[in-house]
Simulated assay, not measured.
Amino acid sequence: MTRTVLYLHGVGERVRGGRWRATLDRALSGHGLAPLRPGEDLLVPDYVDLLAGDRPLPAPPVVGPTYDAARAAAARAVFMAERQRLADALGAPGGGRHLVPSPVYDAGRHAWGAVSRSMRHVEHYRRDPALRRLVLDRVLSALDARARPASGDHDEVVVLAHSLGSLVALDLLPHLPAGVSVPRLVTLGSPAGWPSLHRGPGRTDASFPYDRVGSWVNLHSPRDLVPLGRGSARLFPAALDVPVRLPPARHGAELYLGVPVVARVLADVLGAADRGALAAGAAREAG
């Protein structure tokens, strides 16, 4: 089975020709998978210009969610059973623990947000609904531009999101085009554990489309200043938090994609010949 990967980038990232692409190809080749082909089985919408822009832009109209809340609620138990299976296979903690005490976390979050240009862009994305609509429209256009499967078939898209891209992913999931499902959401270095980024209507457990997403694995380094030692599971029970080991204060997508357990999580859902991709060896590679 062929599944498309949708890559959602972070702030200011070199999306075209960035090192993340070469690292991803090497990671998948280690499990017998061929390199992903841009425009075919790899979609990379580029919204760097929107995040960096400082002038008003016309925004598309507000579009309502496309998922059915009742079906999503009914599918939650099956989703959580799959989450537990992944937790057991990866040796991951199941409770969404916080590795940084709350007072330290709160102080660090505010300080980092004040001095970091990237985090100011994240705050801009949070506060500006027109910007969020523009980014979502560009991502949906990338999904709509590819050939749809035969009538009656489903289009399966693995969403791989780095940093701010994880917030874009959470905004995307309730608005997936008809017939599109996400067998796995993989987030890297996500700031989604910051409660202040979700103020107002929108991203909540109640809005998560459990019927259209198969699993969510959130990989974060406790030494990465963006997640700041926090996973996402306490705010979003759908997420399975898996700590990984990166050098101190490093955050790049290519670094996350170079961690063996990340390759295992991706290879497992992309149909690697090695069906034991999530076996016990991955637990030893987690931080």
Rank of each mutant, 00 (worst) to 15 (best):
S116G: 09
A147K: 14
A142S: 14
G95T: 13
D106G: 15
H121I: 02
Y105A: 08
A145H: 03
A147I: 10
R133I: 07
M119I: 08
A114S: 04
V100T: 09
R126F: 13
R127K: 04
R126Q: 12
D128Q: 14
G108V: 13
H124S: 05
A114P: 02
G108N: 10
A145N: 05
A147Q: 12
R117I: 02
R117W: 00
L134H: 10
R127F: 02
A111Q: 06
D137R: 14
R109W: 08
S141H: 14
L134D: 06
A130I: 02
R146H: 03
R97D: 08
H154F: 09
E123Y: 05
V104M: 14
W112H: 12
V100F: 10
H124I: 00
H98F: 11
L134C: 15
G113C: 10
D144R: 13
H110W: 12
G96Y: 06
R117K: 10
V100Q: 08
L99P: 03
R138L: 03
L140Y: 06
H124Q: 11
D128I: 07
V115H: 10
D155E: 08
D128L: 05
L99M: 05
H98E: 15
A114Y: 07
H98D: 14
S141P: 03
G113W: 00
H154M: 11
L140M: 11
G113A: 14
A150M: 08
R148T: 02
L143F: 02
D144S: 06
L136K: 08
G152K: 04
S151Q: 09
A111N: 10
S102D: 15
R126E: 01
G108D: 01
A114Q: 08
S141A: 15
Y125C: 04
M119G: 00
V100H: 07
Y125D: 09
P129Q: 03
D137G: 13
R138E: 01
V122A: 04
A147L: 12
R109Y: 08
Y125G: 01
P103D: 11
D153C: 12
L136H: 07
S141Q: 14
L99V: 13
A130N: 05
V115G: 07
L131F: 05
D128S: 02
A130Q: 06
L131M: 06
R120S: 11
R117T: 01
R126T: 11
Y105P: 03
G113E: 12
R97H: 07
V115T: 05
H110M: 11
G95E: 14
G152S: 02
L136M: 09
